[in-house]
Write a protein that binds this DNA or RNA. Structure first.
Lengths: 157, 157
DNA sequence: ATAAAATACATGTATGTACATGTAATAAAA
DNA sequence: TTTTATTACATGTACATACATGTATTTTAT
């Protein structure tokens, strides 16, 4: 049991930031890594990786209907994820059932199996629990954070 | 030229968030991916990956002195990075010089080469430029964001 | 001084990212 | 209708992550 290193300066052992904006960039990257690590540790006992969990969560959104690869990819957090290969592994574990598309022969369509649904539910409970215990942020702060993050990304590209 | 998708709801095509806190978690992960993609695209023309750039930046902090693997690893944003192998690639490109430690034979110590310093400087200029043009956040907002992110991580673990 | 423990790093494997390219099915154009 | 373009996905490669394990060197304990 030890106190988590809070300050970015400690986490990456540097205090030479050009600006608050540059520091914010690093802070977002570091916090994302921290959050990801947090849930990965929990997911491991369910035999899932972060991205496999993400795909299961997305599939649940349409359950018991099927989704094609493209629809899943569009909902992934990391857009360059190679969805077909993540699904390969979920199919091997029988958490997802994959069949050829009917009205469009190019598509492969996926649905959660009963096992997939059940693993998803227990792992989600576990992650919610950990977040509850570890991510210290009230609703008001979370809303402020959401606004700031969306502000960052608002420029044309 | 198109307008960047701002809202997380659009980015991951979902609006079923359990709470602002859960949404904030996803928002951080997505924004980190967005930032990373932004700089990766620029780094590519310098033949660098995100993590290789991070190592060069860290080495510059002590330049022209050397650093060992452990010191570099402690400063990485993603703590599970496999520093020895990232360095392998930088050595091949002659951006970093690696030698055996003297006062401790277990260590390998690294320093930037002149080429490494020069690539680092031009790529840093390019990235600063892109951030300036794309990351829309003023200093006050950035400071608020930094506080919120550090607040998230403040719990014991 | 010798054995045991710890440290610093290298290496191996499964999985994922980022991106290029290939292939079959569908849609659009001539 | 036939050609051409596009779409949806599969596959390949280089690099990175996450984690386990191996190896040499140093430190500590006996």
């Amino acid at each position: 049991m030890y106190i988590c290193i809070v300050k970015l300066e400690n986490a990456i052992q540097s205090n030479k930031f050009k600006s608050e904006v540059q520091k914010a960039g690093l802070n977002i990257l570091y916090t994302a890594w921290w959050l990801k690590t947090l849930s990965c540790k929990e997911l491991k006992e369910f035999g899932l990786t972060h991205e496999q969990y993400n795909v299961l969560r997305i599939l649940k959104g349409k359950h018991p209907n099927q989704m094609c690869v493209k629809d899943i990819a569009g909902r992934m957090i990391e857009k360059n994820s190679n969805v077909p290969r993540i699904i390969d592994r979920l199919v091997v574990k029988k958490l997802v059932k994959r069949t050829q598309g009917e009205h469009d022969g190019r598509q492969t369509v996926m649905a959660l199996t009963q096992a997939g649904l059940s693993v998803l539910e227990s792992s989600t409970n576990k992650i919610d629990e950990i977040y509850e215990a570890t991510v210290s942020l009230n609703n008001k702060d979370a809303a402020a954070l959401n606004n700031l993050l969306e502000k960052i990304r608002e420029k044309e590209k």
